[in-house]
Computed example of a mutant assay.
Amino acid sequence: MNETLQDLMERRLREMGHRRGRGESISLREAYQRVLDARNRDELEAAETGVPLNQAGPPTYEVFRRIRNGHTRITDTTASALATMLDVPLSDVYRAAGIAPRLGRFELPTRADRLDQDQRKVVLSVVDAILKAGEGDAKQPAGDELDKRRKMQRVQTRAARRDDS
């Protein structure tokens, strides 16, 4: 059975709570603080080395709250922050989100430097078409059983939160 993004988050929050000697999950706010702390460390290191940070700040708390409630479409920045927050490899986050991990820069062979502008446009249009087709696949339902399970988990999670209030 595949672990969803929401499953991964709930499991890791629970495990992190148990690791601290608690009988319950740590709060989402506590886990989010890990992202903010990592960003602060990065900023201090950048100031000490003189190398500027090349990325925007971390995603907001609201982004992670929505993921916990079942949102599954995430950016690379959010995936990286989620990996930091949950103390898991980035590949685990991508797998749970149903996103193929990045393989690094895609470079054409040197002989492709001989392509003229029109040929280069054709190559890029093929790449764009492949990427667009992949996005369409990601939007397709993962199967009736998985969809039912996700919906049931969301309902149970919301009910549990209401009971805690």
Rank of each mutant, 00 (worst) to 15 (best):
D76K: 00
G98I: 01
K132T: 11
M16D: 09
I67A: 04
Y94W: 06
G98L: 05
T84C: 01
R29M: 12
R149T: 00
V93N: 02
S165V: 12
A100I: 14
R20A: 11
N2Y: 12
E10I: 14
H18V: 12
K132G: 07
E24F: 14
A38E: 14
A47S: 15
G17H: 00
E30A: 14
D116C: 08
V126I: 09
P101Y: 00
H71G: 00
T75K: 05
H71N: 08
R29A: 15
D116L: 03
M85T: 03
I26Q: 02
D147F: 00
R73L: 05
L108T: 13
D144A: 09
E43W: 09
D76R: 05
A47F: 11
G23T: 11
R68V: 02
E24N: 15
T77E: 02
A159P: 02
T60N: 05
G50I: 01
R114S: 09
P59G: 05
T84W: 04
D163T: 13
T157H: 07
E10L: 11
Y94V: 01
E62D: 10
K121W: 06
G136K: 07
N40Y: 11
A133W: 11
E62T: 14
E15P: 06
L8A: 04
F64A: 01
A133E: 10
A56G: 02
D137K: 10
D163M: 09
L86H: 03
R111F: 14
R66Q: 12
R34I: 04
E24T: 10
P89M: 01
T4V: 02
R162Q: 14
A81H: 00
I130T: 13
M9R: 04
A81M: 03
S27N: 09
P101F: 04
R114P: 00
